[in-house]
Amino acid sequence: MTAGATTDGRPVVCLDLDRTTIYSAAALDLRVPDQHAPRLLCVEVLAGVPQSFMTEEAVHAFRSLQGAAVVVPTTTRTPEQLARVHLPGPAARFAIASNGGHLLVDGEIDPGWSAGVRARLAGCAPPAEVEAHMQARGGPFMLRLRTASELFCYAVVDRAALPAGWVEALAGWCAPRGWTVSLQGRKVYAVPAGLTKSAAAAEVLARSGGTHLLAAGDSLLDADLLDAADLAIRPAHGELATTGFTRPHLAVTTATGAAAGAELLAWLSERAGAFVLTGSGKP
């Protein structure tokens, strides 16, 4: 049995965070008069300023989900960025950060997993080379450029000023070097092809003794995770919605914004509970 292994036996639910489970003020998309706005729980603070929220309905659904499944926060955030997020209920036994580059067990980075990831990425161009190329091909439209966890790169850009074809040209340069490129909101991500959330999710499933994998996410970097799940759901907003991403085992919320977060958490809680009751692959 691998380090950190348990024998929980419940389904594993991997939850993307930003714009899936938690929402910034700009992403709440409440669509109701102020007097009817839902109460919000702040789950992240940065430099003393509230950053991310869940509705009261989402909190209730999240707590229900915790009772039915092994809930795994699954994010492209670095471990340091993830540490700012305080979800309701008990702390997660497992969490996935850096797009699968880090596996956290009881809040601590698993060094064996991290070493294995770096070994798998050894055939790809190093992040410093990709960052240098992005910097050299940048311009006033590139507001910030970072390498995250020494694993992948992202640029915050001014979408209105982003030159036509720039993302495509970057993707063409990255592909033979083993990297993929995606534009998501105001960020251009360059990520090694072998750095995936789905690989880390499979590891959690094995360690927990989980019966099935369920997942939720809104972005292009969640696509592999949703593909790998037995059942999955995405909100009706985000990059996957824009591209019309569908799969036979994938549900889509009717709501957008924070209301979609509550809806998908309730959907996952119901399906996870059904898996527990039936003990089969069909909830």
Rank of each mutant, 00 (worst) to 15 (best):
A5C: 12
R10W: 03
V13L: 05
L15P: 02
R19F: 00
T21G: 02
Y23M: 09
Y23D: 13
A25P: 00
A25L: 04
L28A: 13
D29C: 07
D29S: 08
P33C: 03
P33E: 09
A37N: 07
A37K: 13
A37Y: 08
L40P: 03
S52G: 06
M54A: 06
T55C: 06
E56F: 03
E56T: 15
H60Q: 14
A61T: 07
A61Q: 02
A61V: 07
F62M: 03
R63T: 12
R63D: 13
A68T: 12
V71M: 04
V72D: 09
T75Y: 05
R77W: 04
R77P: 02
T78I: 03
T78F: 00
P79K: 13
A83Q: 12
R84C: 10
V85F: 00
L87C: 10
P90W: 01
A91G: 06
R93S: 08
N99R: 02
N99G: 06
G100W: 10
G100A: 12
G101H: 03
H102W: 04
L103R: 04
P111T: 09
A115C: 04
A119W: 01
R120V: 11
L121Q: 09
L121G: 08
C124A: 15
C124D: 14
A128R: 13
V130Q: 02
E131N: 00
Q135S: 10
A136W: 03
G138M: 09
G138N: 11
G139P: 01
P140N: 08
P140S: 14
P140R: 11
F141S: 07
M142K: 01
L143D: 04
R146F: 05
L151Q: 05
L151D: 03
C153V: 15
Y154F: 15
A155G: 03
V156R: 10
V157D: 02
A160D: 11
A161C: 03
L162W: 08
L162M: 12
W166I: 15
E168W: 01
A169M: 12
C174N: 08
S182R: 11
S182L: 09
L183S: 14
Q184E: 15
Q184F: 07
G185V: 06
K187D: 02
V188H: 00
V188G: 00
Y189C: 03
Y189E: 01
Y189F: 15
Y189P: 01
P192E: 07
A193V: 12
G194F: 01
L195M: 01
K197F: 02
A202C: 09
L205E: 12
G210V: 12
G210I: 12
H212Q: 13
H212I: 02
L213C: 08
A215S: 11
A216G: 09
A216H: 06
L220Y: 04
L221P: 00
D224L: 04
D224F: 04
A228I: 11
A229F: 09
E239D: 13
L240F: 07
L240S: 11
T243H: 08
G244Q: 05
P248W: 01
H249N: 11
V252Y: 00
T254R: 12
T256G: 13
A259S: 11
A260K: 14
L264G: 10
L265I: 08
A266N: 02
R271A: 10
G273H: 01
G273A: 02
G273Q: 03
F275T: 09
V276G: 02
K282V: 10
K282T: 13
P283D: 07
